[in-house]
């Protein structure tokens, strides 16, 4: 049977890994290539890199990071953040990423999803979604709304509808980030994850809120997620990938041996 995937996420700014809470107060936590090698050796199933470099002129720093990561690790990894055009997508894929993740650019221009899927295949295109709970209201039937700019801008789009539209347009996977849960270490947004996962036919990666291995166990069972994104719980050495996988195995969840 297919294993559930454990995916460390690295935020990269101007070539360095950083970590912040709710996209703010970022601190330097290391070299992304060294960290990629460390997590590869430690048994991570996949990696996610988000380029949070503010300036578009410094984007080529990230391409160089991607190239060096691709020479170092031999598991899939995706790259997101600041991907606006088909050419941006091509650049990270050619540099060696397995997948490319589009988020706010897709919200503004959904065609980027179908264009990417046509050009590179659906398996390459991850739809990243930042979501906030706003309660049921007109246009937001699920109660979950799509936000961009780190949660500061509400887009008036229903998260579930957007996930389904993204699938129809050709996204091969959804990375579902709860802005409410992000950085809290109180657990994933279970309702949101389950709602989306049960209503699309592409894999869903749960993101935001992981603090303990039990949180991953919950989201991979009750939350119906296919994979779980983790960040600070491993970046600061609180848990290892092996700790997490041992816990999941104890709970009867199938994971690849770390």
């Amino acid at each position: 049977m297919l294993s559930k995937r454990i995916i460390p996420c690295l935020d990269v700014r101007e070539g360095r890994t950083t970590k912040g809470i709710k996209f703010e107060n970022n601190v330097d936590i290391g070299d992304p290539v060294d960290m990629a090698r460390f997590y590869y050796e430690a048994g991570a199933d996949e990696l996610v890199f988000y380029d949070i470099t503010a300036s578009h002129e410094k984007r080529n720093i990230m391409i160089d990071v991607v190239r060096r990561v691709a020479e170092t690790i031999f598991i899939p990894f995706s790259v997101g953040g600041g991907i606006r055009t088909l050419e941006d997508m091509r650049a990270v894929l050619l540099a060696g990423a397995e997948k490319v993740s589009v988020n706010s650019a897709a919200v503004k221009n959904p065609d980027i999803i179908s264009q990417g899927a046509r050009a590179f295949g659906s398996q390459c295109v991850v739809l990243g979604m930042d979501v906030k709970y706003v309660g049921e209201k007109e246009g937001i039937q699920s109660g979950y709304e799509i936000v961009i700019n780190g949660g500061r801008t509400y887009m008036g789009m229903d998260a579930l509808e957007w996930a389904q539209k993204g699938e129809k347009l050709g996204a091969g996977e959804i990375c579902l980030n709860s802005i409410d849960a992000d950085g809290t270490k109180d657990g994933y947004e279970m309702n949101l994850t389950r709602l989306v996962s049960e209503n699309v036919n592409i894999p869903v990666i749960a993101s935001g809120g992981a603090g303990t291995p039990e949180h991953l166990a919950d989201v991979l069972t009750e939350g119906r997620a296919d994979a779980a994104l983790i960040a600070s719980m491993v970046h600061y050495g609180t848990y290892t990938i092996a700790d997490i996988k041992a816990h999941l195995t104890d709970k009867g969840i199938k994971v690849r041996k770390a």
Partner: peptide
Amino acid sequence: KEENGILLKVPHMGWNG
């Protein structure tokens, strides 16, 4: 379907034995 009745997604994507 999985044993618990959940629909299996295609493509088959991820790690397997």
